[in-house]
């Protein structure tokens, strides 16, 4: 099972790196997390560029999480600050994005919180 997990992570990371070539695979508590430096996305029809951190496993009471370098005013609900991979991040309250989802889709589903 461990081998299968590594393979899934590798495939998932390859896909998210195809989407965002600067993606970096890191580990938090022995599990993979994905740093997306200077990721470009839209929030409320406004373009944003900031580092994102996708955590594809249960974290801080949520099934999966997406952390933002900065809080986006007037978008998302109940923003809180967290410390992950030795760095401070912001995250809105956004739950029920499944762990089994491919990482590209997981990222996109989390970005719905600010669209």
């Amino acid at each position: 099972m461990r081998g299968l997990f590594v393979s899934d992570a590798a495939n998932n990371f390859a896909s998210i790196a195809a989407m965002h070539p600067e993606a970096v695979l890191l580990k938090e508590g022995g599990q993979p997390v994905i740093l997306l430096p200077a990721f470009r996305f839209m929030a409320g029809d406004q373009p944003h560029v900031m580092d994102l951190l996708l955590v594809p496993f249960a974290h801080s009471g949520y099934i999966t999480r997406l952390f933002f370098e900065r809080k986006i005013e007037d978008r998302g609900a109940n923003w809180n600050q967290h410390r992950v991979v030795e760095r401070n991040w912001w995250a809105p309250s956004w739950n029920h994005v499944p762990e089994a989802m491919p990482w590209t889709k997981m990222l996109s589903a989390h970005l719905r919180a600010v669209t």
């Binding site: 809105p92 309250s93 739950n95 029920h96 989802m101 996109s108 970005l111 919180a113």
Partner: peptide
């Protein structure tokens, strides 16, 4: 051009 599909899941808890 790169396209992706967004699954309508997730919600503010």
């Amino acid at each position: 051009m790169k396209f992706f599909e967004q699954v309508p899941c997730g919600g503010s808890s």
